[in-house]
């Protein structure tokens, strides 16, 4: 469990990181908190020839209100968000952090890393879709903003170009009546199923049931007309098409979906 040899580069600015990505091409990888990448390198499932460490790039560690919006820099850690006071507008974001791994992981893992890694059950990915986030990326072509709805494209696959870096995520609208909840056998595990709802938008997003965080329009329609809880859970369970897997049948995953959407609705309504 030792990584293959690589060359280490420390980037001092976003531009420098983009420059390195450009120069080094496919053989290079960004490293932020290292909480996903290093594990894969230790198993030699990832073997980048070059690592570009953005950990000390200035200007990527802000948590800031900007009018109605909330802006979070790519290098902000899960723990920093967990302990920040985001007010009732974005309590759903700080509350969701406790579901991410364990404390040591949260003190190193970053928002940008989670979004770029794009695990379909990752809390940040669910939140991004739930709250219609905009992911701000910078590459050799300059800065651009990618709506969360277009960002996640498949298993660990995003709309980022090879020379692009996430610099910030923007949550444009407050979500005072939103919640994220999930189920796993152990604390800190990636969720078997995760559910996030925003009663006002309304939005229902599921993790663990598809290759990307999944919006469920039929459940959202129920929230629009019927109000919260049970029918939304039913609708979400009916809308998904999971596979049978060892230990988790499709039937069970549907049941978890129903339960968790209901519970997320209850939590959101209680805020």
């Amino acid at each position: 469990m030792k990584p293959a040899a690589f060359t280490y580069h420390r980037a001092r600015s976003v531009a420098a990181a983009v420059g390195l990505l450009n120069d080094l091409g496919d053989d290079a990888k960004i490293i932020a908190g290292g909480q996903s990448l290093v594990a894969m390198m230790n198993f030699r499932l990832a073997r980048p020839e070059h690592l570009i460490d953005i950990g000390r790039v200035p200007g990527l560690d802000h948590i800031r209100r900007d009018g109605a919006a909330l802006r979070i820099g790519a290098l902000v850690t899960h723990h920093a968000v967990e302990t920040a006071d985001l007010g009732t507008d974005f309590a759903v974001v700080s509350d969701a952090m406790r579901w991410i791994g364990h404390l040591p992981i949260r003190t190193r893992g970053t928002v940008g890393g989670s979004l770029a890694h794009a695990d379909a059950t990752a809390e940040w990915c669910l939140l991004a879709v739930l709250l219609d986030a905009e992911i701000v990326a910078e590459g050799s072509g300059g800065r651009r903003t990618i709506p969360a709805g277009e960002f996640f494209q498949g298993v660990f696959t995003t709309a980022l170009e090879p020379d692009e870096l996430i610099v910030e995520v923007v949550f444009p609208r407050p979500a005072p009546r939103a919640a994220l909840t999930e189920y796993a056998e152990r604390r800190g595990d990636f969720a078997t199923v995760a559910a996030a709802v925003d009663l006002d938008a309304p939005r229902v997003v599921l993790g663990g049931v598809a290759t990307v965080p999944l919006r469920v329009p039929s459940a959202e329609a129920v929230l629009m007309t019927d109000g919260p809880r049970i029918p939304a859970g039913e609708a979400a369970a009916a809308a998904i098409d999971p596979r049978d897997e060892p230990g988790v049948s499709a039937h069970y995953r549907r049941a978890l979906t129903r339960t968790l959407v209901e519970r997320a609705c209850e939590e959101a309504a209680a805020r």
């Binding site: 594990a39 198993f43 364990h102 056998e185 152990r186 595990d189 990636f190």
Partner: peptide, 16 residues
Amino acid sequence: PLCPSFMEYKVPTAAE
């Protein structure tokens, strides 16, 4: 073997 790491081999933590 299907449990090469603690992701798959679910040793309980202090929380459990």
